[in-house]
Amino acid sequence: MEDNKKGKSTNRRNFLKLGLMSSVSAIAGTTILSSLTSDDETSGHSHSGEKIRLLTTDGKIVEVDAKSINNYPEAHITPEESRKGIPNKHFVMVIDLAKCKNARKCVEGCQKGHNLDPDEEFMKVHLMQDHEEGAPYWFPKGCFHCDQPPCVTVCPTGATFKREDGIVLIDNDRCIGCKFCITSCPYSARQFNWGHKDKYDDKSQPYSPETSTPGTVGTVTKCDFCPDLLRQGKLPYCASSCPMGVIYFGDKNEDIVTNGDETVRFSELIAARGGYRHLEHLGTKPNVYYLPAVNRQFPLERGFNVDEKIMDRYKDVPLIKKLKEEGKL
């Protein structure tokens, strides 16, 4: 077994450890079975339009619509129901900047899960350099799901709303597309569906604000913390796709967060590592916390190993400018 040689291979770890370490009493009442199978490469929690590849016993590779296989064991979450949220939860995300090397797996996992096009990113990885002398760092960013969300305040129809579990969702059946929420979000978390796309026509599954799919032209969309997965006791796509365990996710009430690999006390993690929230002074009270990029596991340059087009995004960062001037890039 090649996997055994690798020892710590993700696949094996998920197969063995998650059986013991994943929560059996997941909210959706899933069995050990489904908890055991949270390997993203192979499992089928993808959305409509998304195909999964299977090898049949007669030696054929078939592509099956992910939704045609029972992907949502529970009842469909209607827009009305999705306004309430998962009871007694308060979701938080902790992003460990010291571990991020711009592998972009979170972006890809999220895009796959939400059926997004290549440049559509709910989760983005920015290259930040706070000042000329400051150390640059990779900065994965989705929606902060603020406790005092300016986007929700300004919505004239209640299309975007704050749930009891802390998640800020968008009901794109309700959204009139005024885009006021986009201008009032100081974190540029929101995006607009500018034109029609064929994938919006896929009505094989009823629309739920909890999955953000299918999209609708002329409405706003954004990172949703994947409440459909949370209901199944699974991590959001970004957190489960990250090979470095950068993204921790959990319930603040429970005070426990996990990155799929290790599970820790939220409060202790924040206290020990100097966790902070981005642009705290704006008073939005985000639910995404960052652990500063100190004692890094990887040199920043490891993140340069991306597509040229992606690399081109960072051209205005002082470091990149400097490296280009010196001809090192």
Binding site: P156, R174, G177, F192, N193
Partner: peptide, 18 residues
């Protein structure tokens, strides 16, 4: 406005804070 067909939502689901 992206969805002019839903303009009446302003009166169906008004939010006074906006």
């Amino acid at each position: 406005i992206g969805r002019l067909d839903r303009l009446h939502y302003l009166f169906l689901y008004p939010r006074i804070q906006s």
